[in-house]
């Protein structure tokens, strides 16, 4: 990366953040390519953050037409009806995002990316899937892992006032500063499948209850063949039944996955904008850390619950 300087325009625009992460990190950011699929509120927040940060390119994937539902936590869809007619959420959002930072290329990828070939993912450095089904998360993660290139993989989910981030950086080398010294570090990540296959009984007692609750609902939607967030309060009895089965199969007490938590996650609106902002912000920071190779990244889950206000990191399967 030597010999390359930021342009005057970049130096002026990015002045305040270069003071946070340095010129090298800024250069790496400007060469990175990011794919974001599933443009719900959290993904929109994330897109805003990385476009402002000055990544090289962002590809958006979401073929849904613009409906009332798509508008709920989305500030990239203008309300002047004409512009949105006949366009997908990704198309409209890409137009708005381009405006945020003319130095970032924003494009649209059509179709279901979980069905894409492995090669498709080779052109990205970071892949983020938002509000994906269990099967689709698994498929995309596996495809990214088949590449020789290290593609950083993230899933994000928001349900009611809770959010979850999963991170898979495979083998990640980075530097961090401890006191005044720079340390070289390396960490290994389990895949999504490996992580969620860990028997619950072998997990730490004080693991965030959200981890279990998210797995129960994810499994429920998978079994019922529903899309993400299609579970409602009417399904509560069935969700609780699945919870009981999973707890028994994993030999853990049902109190690990409280009724009230499950009820809250399926009863509330699918997205709570302040939580989207928080999860999208944390995810943005993580992606910047991963690209720049600076600072300890999250390994490998992050949970936020507005009810208690805690944002917690959980390391599932610390020794893959």
């Amino acid at each position: 990366m030597k010999g390359e300087e930021l342009t005057e325009q970049e130096t002026a625009l990015y002045d305040r953040q270069i003071r946070v992460w340095g010129v090298d990190a800024q250069r790496r950011l400007s060469k990175s390519h990011i794919l974001v699929s599933g443009l719900r509120g959290t993904a929109i927040e994330f897109c805003k953050n990385i476009v402002l940060a000055g990544v090289g390119s962002v590809a958006l994937n979401d073929d849904r037409p613009v409906t009332e539902e798509a508008l709920t936590a989305n500030f990239l869809i203008p309300s002047d009806g004409e512009r949105v007619v006949g366009k997908s959420v990704a198309e409209i959002c890409s137009e708005s995002l381009k405006d945020f930072n003319p130095m970032v290329r924003v494009s649209v990828e059509k179709g279901d990316i979980s069905c894409q070939s492995v090669d498709f993912f080779d052109k990205f450095d970071v892949v983020v899937v938002c509000c994906y089904s269990l099967a689709a998360k698994r498929m995309v993660n596996e495809k990214c892992r088949k590449l020789s290139k290290h593609v950083a993989f993230y899933t994000v989910d928001c349900r009611d006032s809770c959010g979850e981030i999963f991170v898979d950086l495979r083998n990640h080398a980075y530097t961090k500063k401890k006191l005044d010294e720079t340390m070289e570090c390396q960490i290994h990540y389990p895949s999504f499948e490996e992580s969620i296959s860990v028997p619950w009984s072998s997990l730490p007692k004080r693991l965030s209850k959200l981890y279990f609750a998210m797995r129960v609902i994810e499994r429920f939607e998978d079994v019922e063949n529903r899309r993400h967030g299609e579970t409602t309060i009417a399904d509560l009895a069935d969700v609780l039944k699945l919870r009981t089965e999973l707890c028994q199969a994993n030999s853990v007490n049902e109190s690990q996955v409280p009724d009230s938590l499950l009820e809250r996650l399926i009863a509330g609106p699918s997205e709570f904008p302040p939580v989207c902002a928080i999860i999208g912000g944390i995810l943005g920071q993580e992606v910047i850390k991963a690209i720049s190779g600076k600072g300890d990244p999250i390994k490998n889950f992050f949970f936020f619950d507005a009810a208690d206000g805690k944002g917690v990191i959980e390391d599932i399967l610390s020794n893959p």
Binding site: P274, G280, G281, I282, Q285, A306, G309
Partner: peptide
């Protein structure tokens, strides 16, 4: 020094 992500997180917490 200032970055967008921290401001976004803090704004979310303010609203809560």
């Amino acid at each position: 020094h200032a970055v967008a992500t921290t401001n976004a997180i803090i704004a979310g917490l303010i609203v809560i």
